[in-house]
Design a protein around this nucleic acid. Structure first.
Lengths: 350, 350
DNA sequence: AGCCTCATCTATATCGTTACAAATTTTTCG
DNA sequence: CGAAAAATTTGTAACGATATAGATGAGGCT
C-alpha cells in the first residue's frame, strides 16, 4: 500500500494519476474525462448530453473515452443539481397477503425500468400510520420522481394529493373521482361476472363471493360484476360476511367451514385470491363435500400455483407482472413529460 | 403569483422570505433553519449532529425549529458530500419461483430499516448477465452502503469480491470458503434430516428429495441432511434427476408423475419448496395414490399456504421474514462499523 | 491591564454535476 | 483583408450538506 503510494507519487503529475486511479477502482468523474481529453468539464458534460453546440467529433471522442473508462454519472450530484432523483418509489403495504402479489409487480416494474437510469425503491407503508403519509413524505422531500401504489380506494386521498400537485404517479386500481387519473387496473367486474356465469353454467344455484375490504374500489367492481350476473340468471347469492380477502386465511376457512355446515349453503364460490380459494377447498374437504359436485369454485389465478392444485379448479388469470410492467412504462412516460391522461390508463382484460 | 412576489419584495429582507417559503411547501434546508434561528449554516449542521462543541441550549433550540418546520436533510447533498448513500441494495433474481420468497424477505428488511435513514433499493439481476455484475456495479459506483443477496454458492464470487473490498454485505446462505463471512442461513441440513426421519417414522421405505440446483450451497446441505438420515436408517433413497426446485412447476410434476408410474417408486418425498410439494400432491392425485398411505410428504413451509392445503401435509417452517429482519439488522450493524464476523452470522434453527 | 484558555460559533472549501453567460476560435463574405 | 456571424469551447456559480480550520468573546490568571 505505502510502497505503491510512493511509486505513484514518485512518477509525475496529475493527468496520469487520474488515469491510474480510474484504472484501479476509483470512480471516474467528468473531471477524469476532462483530463483525459484535454477538454473542460463543462464541455464534457455537454458532450455527453449530446448537446448540438458541441462538435460532433468531440461528442464522439468524449463518448468513447467515457465508455472506455466506464464512466457513470454520479447520481447524488445529478440529483442535487437537477432535482431529478431517478428513483421510482413503490409504496408497499407489508400486509398484502396475496401470494407473490408484490413480487410479481416488482418483477414487472424492474423489467420496465431495465436499461433506464431509474431505480426502484421500496417504501413501506406501516399500518400504524395513515395511508397518505408515505406519499406525502415522498412528494415533500422529493424522494422520487414518480410513485407507484396499489389498493386504490374510491376517493383515494393519495390520488387527490398527487393530482393536485401534478406529481407523476400511477396506481393499481381506479378511483371513483371525477377527475381522470393514471392507473393500471384489472377488469374485476368482468372477472366476477364471468366467474359467476361459469359457476351457474356448471350447475351452481346459490353463489357466494368473498370480497376484498369494502374500502377498496375493486371490491365494488367485483360486487357489481357478481350482482349483475346473479340478477341476470336469477340464482341465489350471498356475500361472505365478516371475512374479506384480507382476513387471515384461517379465519376465512373457519367462516367457510361454518357456513358450509349451515342450511341453504351456497354451492358456488368466487374467490378473488388464491389463498381464499384454497380455504374454500379446505372447508369443502373438511366437510367431505365433493368439489365440482357439491361445491363449485372459480378462483382468480395470479401465479402458477393452481396448475398444481388438485382437484383441478377453474381459474381466471390476472397477470400481475404485466400490470407492473405497464405501470412502469406508463409512469416513465409521464415523468418524461406531460401526457394526456387517457394515455396513462390501462385496463387489463379478463 | 406576481402580486405576491411584489408584496414580498416590498416588505423587508430575507429571513421572512425563507419563513414564508418553508411555510408553504418549499423544502426547508439548513439555510432555512439558519435564517430562522439567526445562526450560521455550519452551526445548525453541527447542532443537528449533536456536536458537543455547540451549546446545549443552542442544540435544543435548533432541534426544535427543525422539528417544527419538518426539516429533513437532503439525501443527495449528504450523499455527495459524505459518500454515504443511506441505501441498502437487495439484489433480486426475478427468477425466484418460491412463492413470496422475495416478499417475505423484503418485509423483514423494511422492518429492520424502519426508523433508520436507510432505503431499500431493489437491484434486479437479469439472468443474461453474470451474477457478479450487479454487485460489482453497486460497489464500483457506490450505489449503496450495503448489499443483500440470496442463493449463495459454495465458492460464491460475490462473497469473494465483497470480502476482498471490505464492502458491507450479508447473504442468505453460506459459502464453503475458508474465510468466514456474514450470512443468515436456515439450517437446511437439519430440515432434510428431520424431514427424512419423519417420513421413515411414518412408514416410508424409499425416500426421494427434490433438490435446488447443485450450484447453490443449500443444495448440499439438504443433500447431506438427507443422506445422513437415510444411511442411519438404512432405507432406500433417490435424488430427483433432471428437475430441481427451480424447474418450472409443470416440469416437476411431469417428472414426478412419470416416476410415480414406474416400479420401485419412492414412497416418501421431501420438498424444499411449496410449489414442488404441490407438484408431488398433484402427481399422487393424478395416479390415484393416497397421500399419507401410498405416498408421504414433508414440505418446507414458508407461508400460510399449507395451512389451507388438504389433505394436511406435514411441514417444517422456515421464517423468511425473520431472515430478512435479521439480515437487515446485521447489515446495519456492519455498516455502523467493524464487527467481528461471527457476530454477523446467524443460523435459523429448524 | 495583558495574556491565555475555554466554550462557542463561523467562514471556506468541497463533493460531481449542470445552467447560464461569456470567451474563444473558425468561418463567412463584402 | 478585416469585420461580422457562426461554431465551438470555457469559466463561474449553484444545488445542500459537512470537514477543516479559524474566529469571537467570556472568563481566569498573573
Amino acid at each position: 500500500m505505502s510502497l505503491e503510494d510512493l511509486g505513484d507519487k514518485g512518477r509525475r503529475a496529475k493527468p496520469e494519476r487520474a488515469a491510474a486511479k480510474s484504472g484501479v477502482g476509483a470512480k471516474p468523474t467528468l473531471k477524469t474525462i476532462a483530463e483525459l481529453t484535454g477538454l473542460a468539464v463543462t464541455t464534457v458534460s455537454h458532450a455527453l448530453a449530446d448537446a448540438p453546440q458541441i462538435a460532433l467529433e468531440t461528442r464522439q471522442r468524449v463518448r468513447k473515452v467515457a465508455a472506455d473508462i466506464g464512466y457513470l454519472p454520479d447520481r447524488a450530484a445529478q440529483r442535487l443539481r437537477t432535482g431529478r432523483t431517478n428513483v421510482i418509489s413503490l409504496v408497499l403495504d407489508p400486509h398484502e397477503e396475496i401470494l407473490g402479489y408484490a413480487t410479481s409487480m416488482i418483477n414487472g416494474l424492474t423489467e420496465a425500468l431495465r436499461g433506464t437510469a431509474y431505480h426502484l425503491v421500496i417504501t413501506p407503508h406501516f399500518s400504524d400510520t395513515p395511508q397518505i403519509e408515505p406519499v406525502r413524505h415522498i412528494m415533500r422531500n422529493r424522494m422520487a420522481d414518480g410513485i407507484v401504489f396499489t389498493r386504490t380506494e374510491p376517493a383515494d386521498e393519495r390520488v387527490k394529493l398527487l393530482m393536485e400537485n401534478n406529481f407523476p404517479f400511477i396506481c393499481h386500481g381506479r378511483t371513483e373521482l371525477a377527475t381522470a387519473h393514471p392507473y393500471v387496473d384489472y377488469d374485476n367486474y368482468s372477472f366476477a361476472y364471468q366467474a359467476a356465469k361459469k359457476l351457474i353454467a356448471a350447475g351452481a344455484r346459490k353463489l357466494s363471493i368473498i370480497l376484498p375490504p369494502e374500502r377498496f374500489t375493486f371490491a365494488h367492481h367485483l360486487k357489481h360484476g357478481f350482482m349483475t350476473a346473479v340478477r341476470e340468471e336469477g340464482v341465489g347469492f350471498e356475500i361472505a360476511k365478516g371475512v374479506t380477502l384480507d382476513s387471515k386465511s384461517d379465519d376465512i376457512r373457519d367462516y367457510l367451514f361454518r357456513r358450509m355446515g349451515e342450511p341453504e349453503r351456497p354451492d358456488g364460490y368466487i374467490c378473488g385470491g388464491e389463498v381464499s380459494a384454497l380455504a374454500v377447498m379446505a372447508s369443502a374437504y373438511d366437510h367431505k363435500l365433493e368439489l365440482g359436485k357439491d361445491i363449485r369454485l372459480v378462483a382468480k389465478q395470479t401465479s402458477g400455483l393452481f396448475d398444481q392444485i388438485r382437484p383441478r379448479v377453474e381459474t381466471i388469470y390476472e397477470d400481475l407482472a404485466e400490470a407492473g410492467l405497464l405501470m412502469g412504462k406508463l409512469l416513465l412516460k409521464r415523468i418524461a413529460g406531460p401526457v394526456p391522461i387517457q394515455e396513462l390508463q390501462a385496463l387489463q382484460t379478463v
